[in-house]
C-alpha cells in the first residue's frame, strides 16, 4: 500500500510509523534563531495566474506519465534547498518560483523540452510582449514581425 513502485531507497519505511515524535525536540537546536512561521488567512491559493499554470502543468505531465511523482518531489526538494543555499529565506512566497525551476529541469531531464528550447521560447515571448501595442492580446507570432 505504500506505493505502486517499490524502490530500494524507501524500502522498510512503514508509512504508519511516525518518522519523528515529540522527543525529537530534545535535539539541541537554537529555536530562537529560526524565524517565525509566516501566517495567512484563507486567501487565494495562487497569488498570480502563472503559479496556477505551473501547478497544473506539473500535475498534468505526471498524470500523462512523463515523470513519477517521486521524481517530481525530489526535484522540487532539490530546487528548494538550492534556493535556500543561495539566500532565499523560503517563507512560502517563493514556492512557485522553485516549482517553475523544478519543472524546467524535470522536462529537460525527461527529454520533453530542452534547456535551449526553453530559453529561446522565453526570449521569444519577451519579444512578443515588447512588439505588441499596449492593450492588445499578446501572440507569440508578434515576436517574429
Amino acid at each position: 500500500m505504500t506505493g505502486e513502485t517499490p524502490d530500494p531507497d524507501e524500502a522498510a519505511t512503514d508509512p504508519r510509523t511516525p518518522p519523528s515524535g515529540s522527543d525529537v525536540a530534545a535535539v539541541d537546536v537554537d529555536l530562537d534563531a529560526l524565524p517565525a512561521i509566516p501566517r495567512d488567512e484563507d486567501g487565494p491559493v495562487f497569488a498570480e495566474p502563472w503559479q496556477a499554470e505551473a501547478f497544473a502543468m506539473a500535475v498534468r505531465l505526471h498524470e500523462q506519465g512523463v515523470f513519477t511523482w517521486r521524481r517530481w518531489a525530489e526535484t522540487l526538494g532539490e530546487e528548494i534547498r538550492a534556493a535556500q543555499e543561495a539566500g532565499d529565506p523560503d517563507l512560502g512566497d517563493t514556492y512557485y518560483e522553485h516549482w517553475v525551476r523544478a519543472l524546467s529541469r524535470i522536462v529537460a531531464e525527461h527529454g520533453a523540452v530542452s534547456g535551449e528550447e526553453l530559453e529561446a521560447r522565453t526570449d521569444r515571448w519577451r519579444r512578443a510582449y515588447l512588439a505588441t501595442p499596449h492593450g492588445h492580446p499578446v501572440e507569440l507570432s508578434a515576436a517574429d514581425e
Binding site: M57, L118, R121
Partner: peptide, 18 residues
C-alpha cells in the same frame, strides 16, 4: 509595447506553449 511579465511568468508561458 506591452510590458513583459516577470522572468518566471515568461518562462511559464514558454513551457506551456512548448
Amino acid at each position: 509595447h506591452t510590458e513583459p511579465p516577470s522572468e518566471t511568468a515568461l518562462r511559464v508561458k514558454a513551457l506551456e506553449s512548448l
